Amino acid sequence: MKLASIAAALAVAFAAPAYAAAPLAGTNAPGFFRIMLGDFEVTAISDGTVDLPMDKLLHQPAATTGKELARSWLNVPLETSVTGYLVNTGGKLVLIDTGAGNLFGPTLGKLLANLKASGYQPEQVDEIYITHLHPDHVGGLAANGKATFPNAVVRAEQHDTDFWLSQANLDQAPADSKGFFQGAMASVAPYASAQRLQPFNAGVELTPGIRANAGYGHTPGHTTYLVESKGKKLLLIGDLIHVGAVQFDHPEVTIGFDSDSKTAAAARLKTFQAVAKDGTLVGASHLAFPGLGHLRSAGKAFDWVPVNYTQLR
């Protein structure tokens, strides 16, 4: 080929449109992740993430928090997942926690859309179990005063409903805490008015294969849920942990959201020791989505082993 021909060919090649220069897409895939637990289907559903100033929220020196986050290539504020879990037992469709709805800012409130993307509709949810009545766990229950899950019964631990749904407690609360009470009240109101809010006392099986256990401390009635099918176990621990990069090494470190820090720390340590011993799978609301994994004892600390990615077939 003559030199002139080569030059002409190169000119044409470099003049061709650069298709890789498309605009940035800016989004991830819909946020759901599904596993089988015995005969039960469990779907982790993302409500989104929220940036939290963990250097201010954790009860330890801010510089210590910054160093411990940096060891895991994390920053302050920490982008923190909010996750609910949908359990299809074959007999019932049970949603555990509902995300923040519109109570916690624009980066959350995606649980309903992701539930639909996962193949379910809100009308199909039979029961909703709440770990505790903080806004990022109950806000998705209602929108514009109407129940988001029109056929569901809502179950929450009696100590939590007594505390967060109390007008007297709202009246006495500091100004910066009143929103927690108001958010809980507004979220459960459509269900309560329809006689579909049913408090319970911890230590009871709510439906075959799902048992509610006390995990008090983070709130007065904070509850964990043990899901079990054919000998396979999953413990959904709600807010027993917020920051894996800190609290797995130092389970004694508490957070400003705790109602009773000492009791919350004791509940976390007791639960971590139990699941590390028996190998129960764990689901945590605020660990990086999907928040599923196992714990391994490491002296006084714990190692977190995330679940392996699985493609159901």
Rank of each mutant, 00 (worst) to 15 (best):
K178T: 08
G145Y: 14
T310N: 02
S285K: 14
T310C: 02
A288R: 04
D160A: 11
E157R: 03
L57T: 02
G31V: 06
A288K: 04
S166V: 12
D249P: 01
D47W: 06
K232E: 15
T131G: 06
S229I: 08
L115R: 12
L281I: 11
P61L: 11
P77S: 08
F180R: 13
Q182Y: 00
A22P: 00
T65C: 09
P251I: 03
A202H: 02
T219V: 09
G299M: 04
P290W: 09
V275N: 09
L206K: 02
S81C: 02
H218R: 10
Q124D: 13
G279D: 05
M1P: 12
P190D: 07
H132W: 12
K300T: 15
M36C: 04
G105L: 02
Y120Q: 05
G231K: 03
L58C: 09
V12H: 01
A25V: 14
P30L: 06
T254V: 15
P106D: 13
A18W: 12
S259F: 14
N88G: 00
H222V: 01
T43S: 15
S177L: 12
P220A: 12
M1L: 14
S46M: 11
A16F: 09
V125F: 06
A7Y: 06
H250A: 11
I96E: 02
A202P: 00
P30N: 07
G238C: 05
W164A: 09
V82N: 13
L78A: 07
L281N: 08
L236M: 14
G244N: 05
Y216S: 08
V154L: 00
D47C: 07
V82A: 07
W164F: 15
H137D: 11
Q167T: 13
S5V: 08
G283R: 02
V125A: 10
A29Y: 10
L57C: 03
A142R: 01
G231L: 00
K2M: 07
R211M: 06
K270Q: 10
L57D: 01
T107I: 03
H294T: 05
I237D: 02
Q247V: 13
Q158V: 15
V227Y: 05
T64Q: 15
G38T: 08
P61D: 11
F248G: 01
G101N: 01
A16C: 11
D39M: 10
G99D: 06
G109F: 03
T224F: 07
D160T: 10
E123S: 12
Q273A: 15
E123Y: 00
S285A: 15
L115K: 11
V243R: 09
G48V: 04
S259P: 01
N75I: 10
W73P: 00
G139S: 10
N102M: 04
F180N: 13
A175S: 08
T263H: 09
L57S: 03
P77C: 11
N213G: 03
L133Q: 10
G217R: 04
A274C: 00
L226W: 01
V204D: 00
